[in-house]
């Protein structure tokens, strides 16, 4: 299992390739990447704050749950913090399983949980100032399906 919380950019292609190559016997690899999007055309940057120590522990716990529940061969979570520009990759998850259904479901589970159970806070910087992104009810509701 690979968990990384970092301010530096990551190389998605290299990470995905390395993950897939090392688990080639798994049969199914799913990856997901989140990218800073500009919703209203005015976003200058996204700032991500986190809780050092708890973040790594929370991500490890969430990934452990996914590995156990979907009998994953392996899981990877990389999440950035600090200041990110529009178009930059915020985070990625990868799951390796024997069958695609498990790999897809586990990746969705990881995403749903790290959205509202890992201690990250996003702030959008626009020309009008900075605003903390509010948590959405849908994100909390998404957890109930698991």
């Amino acid at each position: 299992m690979h968990i990384a919380v970092q301010d530096a950019p990551f190389d998605f292609g290299m990470e995905a390739e390395e993950f897939a190559r090392a688990r080639a016997v798994s049969g199914a690899i799913v990856t997901f990447t989140g990218i800073v999007r500009d919703v209203d055309g005015g976003l200058r940057a996204m700032e991500i704050e986190h809780y050092p120590g708890m973040t790594e522990a929370a991500l490890t716990e969430i990934a452990d749950q996914a590995v156990t529940r979907w009998s994953l061969e392996d899981a990877l979570v990389i999440h950035r913090h600090g200041r990110l520009a529009v178009g930059e990759m915020i985070m990625m998850v990868a799951t390796a399983a024997r069958h695609r259904k498990d790999a897809f479901e586990a990746a969705e589970f990881l995403m749903d949980y790290l959205k509202s159970r890992a201690p990250f806070w996003k702030r959008e910087i626009t020309q009008d100032g900075a605003e903390w992104v509010a948590a959405r009810d849908e994100d909390e509701d998404a957890l109930t399906r698991w």
Binding site: A58, K115, P119, W121, W132, A134, A135
Partner: peptide
């Protein structure tokens, strides 16, 4: 709220706790 880096509720006991953190709902991903 998190007590010793574990999410918990406001009714959680603090006996033996070293670290308490307060924050808004998380917005990762």
């Amino acid at each position: 709220v998190a007590v010793d880096q574990q999410l918990t509720g406001f009714d959680a006991p603090l006996s033996g706790a070293r670290e308490v953190a307060f924050f808004p709902p998380m917005t990762g991903g």
